[in-house]
Simulated scan of single mutants.
Amino acid sequence: MNSRRIFLQKASASAVAISIPYLPSFSKPLSENEEKSSQSDKVLRVAIMGLGSYGTRVAKAMEDSNRAKLVGLISGTPSKVEAWKEKYSIPDKNCYNYDNFDAIKDNPDIDAVYVITPNALHKEQAIRVAQAGKHVICEKPMAINAAEAKEMVEACDKAGVKLLIGYRMHFEANTLKVVNMRKTGEFGTIKFFQGLSGFMIGDPTQWRLNPTLSGGGAMMDIGIYSINGARYMTGEEPIWVTAQEVKTDPVKFKEGIDETITFQMGFPSGVIASCLSTYSMNNLDKFFLNGTKGFAEMQPSTGYGPIKGRTNQGPLDEPHIMHQTVQMDQMAGIIFDGVEPEIPVDGREGLKDMVIIDAIFKAVKTGEKVLLV
C-alpha cells in the first residue's frame, strides 16, 4: 500500500498514462501426438490454500465436479485442517501450513494449488507454489497491483506451470450466451456498457477492510467484476479511465480502503463504460450492454445464484450449474488438454484487470483522465 501511495503522490496534475507490461506468450498449440495422448477424463488433483468461506464453496463445488478433486489442504489454522481432513478424507501427508507447503514439490498426489487467501498474500504464495512445480489457480484479484501480477506471471512461465485466475463468470452459460450474441453481431455495433457492482459490507474487523491484507476496498473485491465484465461484454480493451471516490464513513473505510468509486472507461471503437463499485449499497449486481440493434441486461450478473436477465430477443434462461463446479472442470481441460476457453482465465488476463485498477486509483488521486498505453 505504501508503495502505491507514494507512486500516486508523484503523479502529475495532467492526464497520466499507465503502460500495460509486455509479457511474451509461452503458450503453444498441441502437436498431433500430444493431442492424441491428451486425457479428456484426467482428474485435476487440487489442494486448497485458505480454508475460509470461499475455500469452503470451492470444496463443495468439487464434490460435483467430474474432472477436479480436493486432495490437499494448506492452512494456518490447525483446527480447520482437522475438520476438513475428516470431512473430505484427506490424508495427513497432503496437509500443510503456510510455513511448510513448499514440500508439495515432493508430493505426486497434488497437481495444482488453489490460492484463496487475502489479496496481499497471493503473490508470494503463488510464486512458491510455482517454484514447487505445481500449477497455480489464484482467486481474483490476483494481486494488489499490476507489478505484483506481472511477477506472478513471469514466475509461473519460468517454472513451466499454468497460472489460472478464478474468473468463474467466464464459464457461466448465460454470460457466454450474451458474449456469443455480441460476437455474431446480434446487438449490432456496441455503444455502451454499464456495470454496477457492490453490497453493504458487514464486520468492520474482517481482512477485506484491512488495507495491509486487501490492498484496497470495494474495487479489489467487487468492482473488479465490472472491470472484467466491461472487457468481455464489449470485446475490447479500454484505452483510458476516469474515476471519482465518495467516502461517507472514514472510520469503517479507513485510508487505503475505498468505499464507493464511480469510474468510466473508454474503448478504441468509441464504446463508453460507466461503472460503480461500492461497499455501501445493495440491490446492484447489474450489467447492461447496448448496441445499435439490441441489448442485454443481467441482474444478478455475477452473483453465485442463477444469473438472470434478458436480451432484445427474450429471456436468458440457460440452465444453472454451480459456477465453481463448471470452473474447476474447465480448468482441468485447460491444464491437461490445452483447451482454450471462450474468455481467457490465464494470468495475463488477470494482469490486464490489475493494470486498470491501478489506473482507477490513480484517476481518483489525480482527478484526471488516465491513459492506458
Results as ranks from 00 to 15, higher is better:
Gly215Phe: 03
Lys183Leu: 11
Arg231Tyr: 08
Tyr232Gly: 02
Ala230Glu: 00
Asn228Pro: 00
Gly217Pro: 08
Met200Asn: 14
Asp285Met: 04
Arg208Thr: 04
Ser277Ala: 15
Ser280Gly: 10
Asp221Val: 14
Ser269Gln: 08
Pro238Gly: 03
Ile261Tyr: 11
Gly185Phe: 10
Tyr225Met: 09
Leu289Thr: 12
Pro250Lys: 04
Glu259Ala: 13
Ser214Glu: 07
Asn282Trp: 13
Pro300Gly: 04
Gly256Ile: 07
Gly256Pro: 01
Val271Ala: 00
Pro211Ala: 12
Ser274Ala: 10
Ala273Trp: 06
Leu213Cys: 06
Ile261Cys: 09
Lys293Arg: 12
Ile257Gly: 03
Val246His: 14
Trp207Lys: 02
Ile261Asn: 05
Phe267His: 05
Phe267Ile: 07
Gly216Asn: 06
Pro238His: 05
Leu209Asp: 04
Gly217Asp: 02
Glu245Thr: 10
Gln244Asp: 14
Phe253Ala: 03
Ser277Glu: 07
Thr189Met: 06
Lys252Asp: 04
Ile257Trp: 05
Lys183Gly: 02
Thr262Glu: 10
Leu213Lys: 13
Thr234Tyr: 10
Ile239Asp: 06
Gly223Thr: 01
Gln264Ile: 10
Lys191Met: 13
Pro204Trp: 08
Val251Pro: 00
Pro268Cys: 07
Val241Ser: 03
Val251Met: 13
Ser214Gln: 11
Ala243His: 10
Asp249Gln: 14
Gly256Phe: 08
Thr234Glu: 01
Gln206Leu: 09
Thr260Ile: 10
Thr184Asp: 15
Ala218Pro: 05
Lys191Asn: 14
Gly195Glu: 06
